[in-house]
Design a binder for these strands. Structure first.
Length: 287
DNA sequence: CTGCGGTGGTCGTGTTGATA
DNA sequence: TATCAACACGACCACCGCAG
């Protein structure tokens, strides 16, 4: 399955949408370098669409995202009356298409500026049968109805919000692998680490609590988050310490203790390694 | 004087690769 | 998914120097 991986923020931006009906024999137009993403959602009938060498049969309840950098065309005419919504959107951030979605997070693609607005990957299936087609139908209908009022700021904001909901729906309809035991294991481990980051939680304890072998947990986390439990815990502790550095005037030693470090010098070393500046320098940025 | 950062050495734990 | 062995490196301690 081809997955489209967007780096957000910036969020995907809605441009326009519309509703079309094809009679039998009509086919989707051929286009090259459209410059925007084109989301198609079929209500009734079926669209036969090609994109480069890939072929799609987009049936009722299915959605297909056509890429802005590819040539797409109607493979054949519709066999029956076909109703569908189209929706154009764009992104000003980076994106990529991957055939095998490893679902990995990129912890290092940090746009971590002072206030740590971290970017994260948003993965959408290029072609999918929606889990809640009725909801998609409703959202697209609302978007379509807002079109005459698109000159009003309030309507434009509403359009963007509805579109984000649609994006959420698409993301939630991904293949069941995203709910695999490995992913669940990694997520539970991460949740446990986040809730107990002040304590000395070992991978053995993690294994006991989750009823999995520690090595297995570490591998799941490596696959899902791109880092080991230890590294995950360290990053989370540093994030928490950054908040305390900004919000309090506690000594570095106290903050180190507060976020789970027994030794303040060691905390400073870790902080410098991850952030590139010392805790003191970080605090000075805000004073 | 106090608080902080840097360095070097040591120990133990976690990670990795291979395998079942 | 689990186990084992080897190895890497995280975590800690002690000490020193610097800056406010």
């Amino acid at each position: 399955m081809t997955m489209l991986v967007f780096t957000v923020p910036p969020l995907l931006q809605y441009i326009a949408c519309g509703h079309s009906i094809f009679d039998p024999g009509e086919r989707h137009m051929s286009r090259r370098n459209l410059h925007v993403f084109d989301l198609l959602f079929v209500q009734k009938g079926c669209l036969y669409i090609g994109e480069e060498e890939r072929r799609y049969e987009v049936g009722p309840g299915c959605a297909l995202v056509l890429r802005p950098d590819c040539f797409h065309y109607g493979l054949e005419g519709c066999r029956e009356r076909t109703e569908y919504y189209w929706l154009h959107f764009q992104t000003s951030g980076p994106w990529t298409a991957a055939d095998d979605d490893a679902g990995e997070l990129h912890p290092d693609n940090a746009a971590d500026e002072l206030f740590d607005v971290r970017s994260f990957p948003l993965t959408l299936p290029q072609f999918v049968r929606l889990a809640k087609p009725a909801k998609a139908d409703e959202l697209l209908g609302q978007l379509d109805q807002l079109h005459p009022n698109a000159h009003l700021s309030a309507a434009r904001l509403k359009q963007q919000l509805l579109f984000q909901e649609l994006v959420q729906l698409l993301a939630a309809s991904q293949d069941s692998r995203r709910n695999s035991p490995g992913r669940a294991c990694a997520e539970r481990a991460a949740a446990l680490l986040r809730s107990r980051y002040r304590e000395d939680i070992t991978v053995r304890e993690l294994g006991k609590r989750l009823s999995f072998h520690p090595v297995y947990i570490a591998r799941c986390m490596q696959r899902e988050y791109g880092c080991t439990p230890r590294e995950y815990l360290l990053r989370y502790r540093i994030e928490q310490s950054k908040l305390l550095l900004m919000q309090t005037d506690w000594t570095i030693a106290r903050i180190a203790e507060e976020v789970g470090f027994r030794q303040a010098p060691y905390f400073s070393t870790c902080f410098s390694r991850l952030e590139g500046i010392t805790p003191r320098e970080y605090r000075q940025l805000f004073h």
